[in-house]
Design a protein around this nucleic acid. Sequence first.
DNA 1: TTGTACGCGTTATCAA
DNA 2: TTGATAACGCGTACAA
Lengths: 344, 344
Amino acid sequence: MKQQKEPTLKLIAEKLNISVTTVSKALKGYSDVSAVTRQRVIDMADQLNYTPNSLAVNFRTKETRTIGIIIPEVVHHFFSSVINGVIEEAERQNYFVIILQSNEKKEMEKRQVELLISKKVDGIIMSLSNQSNDEDYLKMIINKKIPFVLIDKISKLIDCSKVVIDDKKAAFDAVNHLINMGCKKIAHIRGPLNPQNAIDRFLGYKAALAHHNIPFNPELVIPCERVCYEEGYEFTKKIMTKYPDVDGFFAITDLVAVGILTYLNEQQIKVPEQVAVIGFSNWFMSGVISPKLSTIDQPGFTMGAQAFLLLKEEMESMKTTGERLCKTITLNTDVLVRASSKRN
Amino acid sequence: MKQQKEPTLKLIAEKLNISVTTVSKALKGYSDVSAVTRQRVIDMADQLNYTPNSLAVNFRTKETRTIGIIIPEVVHHFFSSVINGVIEEAERQNYFVIILQSNEKKEMEKRQVELLISKKVDGIIMSLSNQSNDEDYLKMIINKKIPFVLIDKISKLIDCSKVVIDDKKAAFDAVNHLINMGCKKIAHIRGPLNPQNAIDRFLGYKAALAHHNIPFNPELVIPCERVCYEEGYEFTKKIMTKYPDVDGFFAITDLVAVGILTYLNEQQIKVPEQVAVIGFSNWFMSGVISPKLSTIDQPGFTMGAQAFLLLKEEMESMKTTGERLCKTITLNTDVLVRASSKRN
DNA sequence: TTGTACGCGTTATCAA
DNA sequence: TTGATAACGCGTACAA
């Protein structure tokens, strides 16, 4: 059983004894085709089960209806939520989404950007690796006039549209909450030194301390390298050993905060009575562990959806004016108070 | 600053005063081009920073170097691991991956299949929704001779290559373990009634009971609909209320098992002393909650990677022989014994 | 060893 | 209102 070959405009034209041009126009609803002809064409197309050859369309129009997204890693609650948001919105607008990972490595990220460019995607959404700033390959996207949106992990040095949260404010809110709960000596297990969001969260932490006239002690801040569960555990051990009177922890992300909780639980240190803990991002698991983890609700899905919509705007803008919008959307975050930080 | 247009074979040919054909051949390493000419072409291509227009290549070759994957949902530890595996292997072989979700809905799934077909992807990987069996759109993939691999959530009624685990055996092992730990009355919070893997796990549960001459009580088995945390909690409540002497739980997946643990913890029912619990899939969180959850290690990443490799084989096969391989790869699973089921 | 010429399916231009 | 024709960039059978 050989596969019958796909019907084409030409086939329809031959069957109806009219020109390919007319068929094309009829199917695309051009006005300069008689109603009768149009109907005949449409009927025949139906009958033959015609669908346009998207390869040919792509070739002609130079558009692929495909966008690319590059993120550090898929298996990560926040990023998979972002992907979900992007896909869902893209789907609604008939775009496909190609997903690539940087694994937090610059070289990878570079390669992925080049791949997407060579694939001629209609636009690119990116969340930067921990090492990236104003890399050449990012500038290349700009120079090549490819619609571009940075999301969450951005660089201030790249001029393009962005979707972010106010990390500094969110961190401030988190630490402020701990202080309001009575914490006097709060440690911060922060992210790596380079990424903007880790910096901003750290600044938020400091600002909250300052706001309440609590002295800042750099020894109470330890940066993660891998931002993992194990680091949360280890750094807490380190801090609590040296400063047993620490009574609050603010973690760069929930995963780390769970490591903190694990250590505290093991040491039978009461949470939240003796030590209160708050994380960041609202990973799924933080709502099902015990004690339930207080955290910052970071709207991954919405960020993804907004990123696509903004990218779409960029596409329009580039097509019409040739210029970028360079719009930044800042989404709201809330403190989710749960058991790990609630003191009556 | 207008965007300079991309260099083409034609441009190179003009610059060198030779034909497009020769340029094409030279760049593709054909033997019938003199070494000198080849070098000149390559140099010029370098100089102009030539890259083939992938849209034109796709159009000519009828290949896109893109595959599609349809899964129930991205934000799900197992599936995101699968995606990771697929992407990583695809990446290595220079393929792109388009990801679509069915949200467990048949109509969605159908639409996504149609989209991928119209996009002319080189192959499709799918994990079926809970409602799907031998749907028409799946048969369409077969009929259209599109390379196809089903993964994890498969249908026995569709004749194609598959990557699976032995769900029945894995479930048997899990329940067998509980029995070996001394459980006499084991409940099973199972998956929905349709999907094959839920059926198989249920059969494994029954088989293990039978193996130890433990009577099967259908009242101790409750099927989930949404397979969520809340159902784990509620169904455990229901079962423990009616049968307080139940001393073991086997859950369709870790998410549900965490719901079970939450209820038991709340009721101060000791785990694992009074009730032992085992889940399925080894979600990340099961290693960080307390007590740590015993589970079945389901190798999502490997399944994804294998699925891509198998799809690649299918592509080769279809190209050469025109026939499908219809190979099934069954991956091993292990029981991960952790605190929730460990008795001395 | 090199080049001519055509085709892939669609769309755009221009003439009829 | 319709159609002839060219064009997109590349690949390839065939001729030179």
